[in-house]
Write a protein that binds this DNA or RNA. Structure first.
Length: 347
DNA sequence: AAGTCGGGGTG
DNA sequence: CACCCAGACTT
């Protein structure tokens, strides 16, 4: 299989997808080097997130903060607001920590060293290997969901994930070339995203069609095997949307730890598993509240949520949170579940 | 090893 | 509806 790496790189030379953060093989041959800041920022955004969802966020971030030094100097709230809607908000908090560590400890340049990268906040095994190989041409192997699927298929590996990870890592590490390790990594991921897809893989046009054991044995569509997941429970809660006559809204900053950490949100009850009656919590302002018609339905990683939305217009002093003026806040600054609650009040 | 942590696209 | 995704971090 080792000699097949060249076939994949040849395929990548022709079929590499164009992305705003990517340096094409042709540009690299002409002497262009990838920007480690762009590689890092894109790889963090791409953690468990699709290319389509990331593209606009990447463009806005690099326009607003062109270098890691610019980002390190940004206000926390501005970065969280710019990240709003992309999800996994710990990434945004760690993004700032990492940028500030690069400035404070590495002179404002990302270290060209796998161990040093791995020590930075928000950079785990995948992202450290991705930056090492893509930005610095260091021969480290990346193992993401795409690579797992491609390796499980070409080696017809039936051990279920995540137990199979070490085996699959051994396979892709053995295939990673000392020349163009970053292009190899991106090529396998492109292959997984466009040809070796989870369902109905396009084996007929795959550059690894001939050596692929799963294609030979007809097992490709059922690989990789995974240990079954638990079903998501349903939780209920209530949020309170208070609007002041001047158009300001009552919001609170959620604690850094936990769900939607560091993001703005509406005050409200805890979110609890299905109960006899829905949790109402304590209204943040003593006034008359009106139940908004309908409800908010939203699904997080490990539970479904149904929210009751209460609405009022008041200029009374709140017990919690702070009224943010129209200049200080827009609905796009909110995580999606909170934006859904806002939208419900506007119907 | 298992649980926490978003959101959108796909079938 | 469930599944998938260029995973990291905590316990």
């Amino acid at each position: 299989m080792r000699e097949r790496t060249a076939d994949l790189l040849d395929w990548y030379d022709v079929h590499a997808r164009v992305m705003p953060w990517r340096t094409s093989p042709a540009d690299k041959r002409a002497g262009t080097r990838p920007d480690p800041y762009a590689v890092w920022l894109s790889e963090v955004m791409l953690q468990q997130t699709t290319v389509a969802a990331v593209t606009d966020y990447f463009t806005r971030f690099t326009a607003r903060w062109p270098t890691v030094t610019d980002l390190a100097a940004a206000e926390d709230g501005d970065v969280m607001a710019e990240w709003a809607g992309l999800g996994y908000y710990a990434r945004a908090r760690n993004l700032l920590k990492c940028a500030r560590a690069v400035v404070a400890d590495h002179g404002g340049s990302f270290p060209a060293d796998h161990a040093a990268l791995l020590a930075l906040p928000g950079i785990g095994p995948y992202t450290a290997a991705a930056i090492s190989s893509i930005a610095f041409d260091l021969p480290h192997a990346v193992l993401d969901g795409n690579v797992e699927r491609v390796m499980a298929r070409i080696y017809d590996e039936h051990t279920p994930l995540p137990a199979a990870k070490p085996i699959l890592m051994t396979h892709t590490a053995a295939l990673t070339p000392s020349e163009r390790p970053g292009d190899y990594a991106q090529a396998v991921m492109d292959l997984g995203a466009t040809i070796c897809t989870p369902k109905s893989p396009a084996c007929g046009i795959c550059p690894w069609r001939d050596p692929c054991l799963a294609r030979q044995r007809g097992t490709a569509p059922e690989l990789p095997r995974k240990t079954p997941k638990k079903t998501k429970p349903v939780r209920h809660g209530t949020v309170y949307v208070a609007r002041r006559p001047d158009g300001a809204y009552l919001l609170e900053r959620r604690p850094d730890r936990g769900l939607l950490g560091g993001m703005l949100g509406w005050p409200g009850s805890d979110w609890v598993d299905v109960s006899i009656e829905r949790p109402a919590g304590t209204p943040p302002v003593d006034t008359t509240w009106t139940k908004v018609q309908g409800e908010v339905r939203h699904t997080f990683t490990h539970f479904h949520l149904i929210l009751t939305v209460m609405l009022t217009e008041t200029d009374a002093e709140p017990h919690t949170g702070r009224f943010l003026t129209q200049a200080e806040f827009g609905p796009s600054d909110l995580p999606t579940v909170m934006r859904k609650a806002f939208d419900l009040t506007r119907h």
